[in-house]
Nucleic acid binder design. Structure first.
Length: 571
RNA sequence: GCGCCCUUAGCUCAGUGGAUAGAGCGUCCGGCUACGAACCGGGAGGCCGCAGGUUCGAAUCCUGCAGGGCGCACCA
């Protein structure tokens, strides 16, 4: 809850209560009181529909109720006007003084501006990307990387203690196939006759890895038993791919706190005891959700709304992927005790959501897992669909895309659409229109601000304007001088920041922030066009407007920071 | 067949119970002898996929239908 919103809701509640006491109003029950932002600026800064909600309980037309409330809330110094409109809306316009306040608040709070206590120190884990370590990431992974990292930043800003995690599927048949593929390429390079594995990975990177092994270690693996060779190649190629993943991700500014290996779930406990998987299944068994059928061990996920029950241990005694995932979530929730766990998966895994939620609920953690399903990225090049398959080899990788469009544009573009909207990404278009890309519009506003501040300080060569502002702009600048429409409009935008972050956090929706960033940049550009900032003939107005410029700089830097996009001081 | 997501301006998309449905791009018209024109102002452009229902009020919630995407393994 934010100060102004809280104030208005309180005023309305008090007005209703006093009207009842005085007998002007009779209420069978108290209506829900909410103040909201009207879509139209012409409708004021805040509006409430409480009169319409109360109509039935009061037995009185909404506009009449609105008149009673309006008469009781006008007069507060922060409220400039109260109007009744349409079917019974009460529109409230804030005073200039109430709007101007945000400038000083942003400057005083700096990077802490817009922080809230919503998370209240609760621990939260975001697990994302989690690409199989058997090849390069596709463009969809880039989208999850941008999404997960930005979400983590946003949730930190509203008070959660956040950890970023990458789950490595380093166990299972795909790893075997991966090793066989590298081995086959290696043997080819040494001139041996080999049949490439039918399901093998055919990408050129496999050959690159094989060539590197041959260059460093010669042909000494050519005549060893296949098992020995593949076992060695698996570990070596795996480590190499993992390093590659880290490298590409950090190229977009994404780093993880924990890289969690699936193998640790299969491994025996510290004292040779049961593995995490065995312990997790034992827990489900105790809780009564396990049964045996046709030689397999099943989890009765239908008890929690899943379509069918799921196998954990196959008839041949091996575990399903799901069994490891159950253990993994047991580890997150039971051993590491995260209050909230967020998994970001591609849309091609949505059929998996129910059973995972069922497992968490069966383990006693219902409602703590939130799965975000991101729709996929359709990659185009010159209008032609680029097929994304690891096996065909021909693909544009996430790394290729980063190289072509750069980390800021890639990130911003990935985040600009809501997660449940499929994303069409045409590489040629993104490059061609780079100067029209909205990320530049926002960054330009920031660079422009920094230029003004350098100019005002008489230090056009200054490296970092943040070092200049405290000396340049007095803390007690007279904000009451700022009443132009463009100024008040800018203050309104600045004042929305905390609310937007809160909504983005609550809905797991970073795209709310890209939109806000563009609106804030637009409000600044409009201000700049009509309000001369540096004016030697008006030193007090100059000081006040420099405060506005600095406050805008702070918020732009913050919002770009939450998106993981740079806020350049020059471009 | 079943499940999830999507369908809003020429294009790409915001908008999950409120008022005259918005933005960017594109298009047309206009604005630099002043702090960054990578900018700003204005115009044209909409049966919100279709049909019912709930509500004082529906792009938004419910039901059905159509179209598109993705899934439906003792694979990972």
């Amino acid at each position: 809850m934010f100060a102004v919103q809280h104030l208005i809701e309180t005023l309305i509640r008090d007005a209703l209560a006093s009207a009842v006491v005085s007998g002007e109003l009779t209420l069978a029950e108290m209506p829900v009181v909410t103040a909201e932002r009207p879509r139209e600026v012409a409708h004021g800064d805040w509006a409430t529909n409480v009169a319409m909600r109360a109509a039935k309980a009061a037995g009185m037309p909404p506009r009449q109720i609105a008149a009673i409330i309006a008469g009781r809330i006008s007069g507060h110094p922060d409220i400039a006007a109260v109007e009744i409109a349409g079917p019974g809306f009460i529109n409230i316009r804030l005073s200039d003084a109430a709007l101007q306040r945000v400038v000083a608040e942003a400057r005083t709070q700096g990077a802490a501006f817009g922080r809230t206590e919503t998370g209240a120190g609760r621990t939260l884990q975001v697990e994302f990307v989690s690409a199989n370590p058997v090849g390069p990431m596709h463009v969809g992974h880039g989208r999850w990387a941008a999404l997960g990292d930005s979400l983590a930043r946003i949730l930190e800003h509203v008070g959660f203690r956040v950890e970023r995690e990458f789950y490595i599927n380093d166990q299972g048949v795909q790893m075997d196939i991966f090793a066989e593929s590298v081995a086959a390429r290696y043997l080819e390079l040494t001139g041996r006759e080999v049949t490439f594995p039918a399901e093998g990975y055919r990408g050129a990177y496999i050959t690159d890895i094989a060539r590197e092994i041959r260059a460093e270690e010669g042909e000494r693996w050519a005549d060893t038993p296949a098992e020995e060779r593949e076992s060695y190649f698996k570990e070596r190629a795996y480590a190499q791919v993992l390093e590659h993943l880290k490298h590409v991700l950090s190229g977009m500014g994404v780093t993880f706190d924990v890289w969690f290996s699936e193998r640790t779930l299969h491994a025996p406990g510290p004292d040779g005891g049961p593995s995490e998987i065995e312990r997790a299944i034992a827990r489900l068994r105790e809780a009564g959700y396990i049964f045996e059928h046709e030689g397999a061990t099943w989890f009765r996920s239908t008890d929690f709304g899943d379509d069918k029950d799921r196998v954990l241990t196959k008839a041949d005694g091996s575990y399903t992927y799901f069994a490891a995932d159950v253990a993994y979530h047991w580890n997150k929730l039971e051993e590491r005790r995260f209050d909230i766990v967020i998994d970001i998966w591609g849309a091609d895994h949505h059929g998996y959501v129910k059973r995972m939620e069922a497992a968490c609920a069966a383990l006693g953690h219902e409602g703590q897992l939130h799965v975000i399903i991101g729709q996929l990225v359709n990659l185009f090049r010159n209008g032609e669909v680029v097929r994304m398959s690891k096996r065909t080899g021909e693909m544009v990788t996430f790394e290729d895309l980063l190289d072509e469009v750069g980390p800021d544009a890639a990130r911003y573009f990935f985040l600009r659409r809501s997660t449940d909207q499929a994303l069409d990404f045409d590489i040629a278009l993104a490059k061609e229109q780079s100067s029209d890309n909205p990320v530049y519009y926002v960054q330009y506003a920031h660079a422009r601000i920094c230029s003004i501040l350098r100019k005002a300080a008489g230090m056009p060569e200054a490296e970092d304007v943040r070092m200049l502002v405290s000396a340049l702009v007095p803390a007690d600048a007279d904000l009451a001088l700022l009443g132009a429409d463009a100024e008040l409009a800018l203050f309104r935008r600045l004042g929305e920041f905390a609310e937007v972050v809160e909504i983005a956090a609550a809905q797991y929706a970073p795209h709310k922030l890209t939109r806000y960033a563009e609106e804030l940049a637009a409000a600044f550009h409009q201000f700049y066009t009509v309000c001369r900032v540096v004016d030697p003939d008006a030193p007090e107005l100059t000081a006040a407007r420099l405060a506005v410029v600095d406050a805008t700089r702070i918020v732009l830097e913050l919002v770009l920071g939450l998106l993981g996009v740079h806020a350049p001081q020059r471009m």
